[in-house]
Nucleic acid binder design. Sequence first.
DNA 1: GTTGCAGTTGCAGTATGTGCAACGTGCGTT
DNA 2: AACGCACGTTGCACATACTGCAACTGCAAC
Lengths: 252, 252
Amino acid sequence: MSQTVDRALTILPLLAEGPANLEQVAARLGVHKSTALRLLRTLHAHGMVYRQQDQRYRLGARLFALAQQAFESLDVREIAHPHLVALNERCGHTVHLAVYEDGEVVYIDKVESRYPVRMYSRIGKPVAITVAAVAKLLLADLPDAERRAVAERLDYPAYTARSTPNAAAFLRELTVVRDRGWATDFGGHEESINCVGAPIRGADGRVVAACSLSAPNVVVSADELLALLPALRGTAEAISAEFSGKPAKPAR
Amino acid sequence: MSQTVDRALTILPLLAEGPANLEQVAARLGVHKSTALRLLRTLHAHGMVYRQQDQRYRLGARLFALAQQAFESLDVREIAHPHLVALNERCGHTVHLAVYEDGEVVYIDKVESRYPVRMYSRIGKPVAITVAAVAKLLLADLPDAERRAVAERLDYPAYTARSTPNAAAFLRELTVVRDRGWATDFGGHEESINCVGAPIRGADGRVVAACSLSAPNVVVSADELLALLPALRGTAEAISAEFSGKPAKPAR
DNA sequence: GTTGCAGTTGCAGTATGTGCAACGTGCGTT
DNA sequence: AACGCACGTTGCACATACTGCAACTGCAAC
């Protein structure tokens, strides 16, 4: 691992918290001002950070472009999208698509019926990994060792009384989810929000993504949401089929 | 500037083109495999790249999270959003919001009436800078020297017969735009798409962002679109007022 | 005019990144 | 089944490029 690059990359999440000046960056990195300056200049040259008029640095526009391109190269998302829209049109609820990557679960698509214009604001956000239905599905499919390792490493924040309390409970839940083939989150993240999820599998049967339906329980009871499970699973299977069926991606 | 960091950051746009293996990365960087490996490992440790099952690298999920956070810290976007939605509801056309940053213009918000679920796919994309109405507005307000420098540096792709042909024409157009206080793009990017834009100004009168209305000319003629100019300018001014009026951002 | 602060620069020393060459490992082939 | 190839990985010696220092600049406040 490269120390210099490591330091430079540490600056990015630091600036994500808010703009910072040279001294603050240097202090947080534990390096000399001149060192921080050089790193920031390099980041700047690549558009990763931007220097605002008060001379403080913040994250730069190139990040948007990169994230954008990263999204576009996610095959699952592309294939899944029309299916998710169809599902949303059918039942009207919020639809999520998420993937697992190195200990994190992130939303890569979202179709929301009520506030369509706000949807992008959540894409890219890390998922509440210990409670979300999609997270359970994705983690449930990991190899034993990795699943356990991740579970042990996690924090278990008590969002609500029904949040997963600890690693043991989480691992038990994951076993249930894996055997059953679908997952729920009944008020585990926000008291009044329920959620059901289904896995999307690649040609080899491994779970490559997960999708879910969410709705506030004042609109839809948990039972009513479960009644939508067949539609959700149908969607997930349609996506799985299409994803497995066309393995030949236009490789470069 | 740091050579090591520079090389590491060069990897990111390279991977944005599509997944690549170690040798390809090393070759593109012009360094030894082992060097590329170390850089990739460091990027990986920060979640900036992800190693897929075929061992090739692609952009990682952390980029999504960072871009996400960067978006959220853009004050203009936050203030502008409800205004843009209102404008969209009023006239039904696509609404864009863009900012200028270091020679690039990027969309930071978009409200689209017809395909709401697709909107995020364009946010973050670099704008066609030589023709887009928002780009003209943002560049028109730059200091003379910088404006000229940027204009000279640009390419002028002939998207259509009405695309801006060269730097001289572009600079002339920018003068017009600045004096007039609004901009157009009539088929300069896509033959059938017309567009009008208006500037959003900070407390000091400088243009901090620009918003625009776009519509295909089969739906709305250029004249009809121009008729919406008062509404658009009203929106832009409302955003400007709110942005200037509440200077006290909860600074950290 | 003077003081203080934040950013910037040049430089010497050495920590750190680099390329090399040898080693593993997985996969397709004969 | 054994082989060979291609690609990723490792340890090491060398020297490049990164670091911290200290002095300098520009700017703003008093």
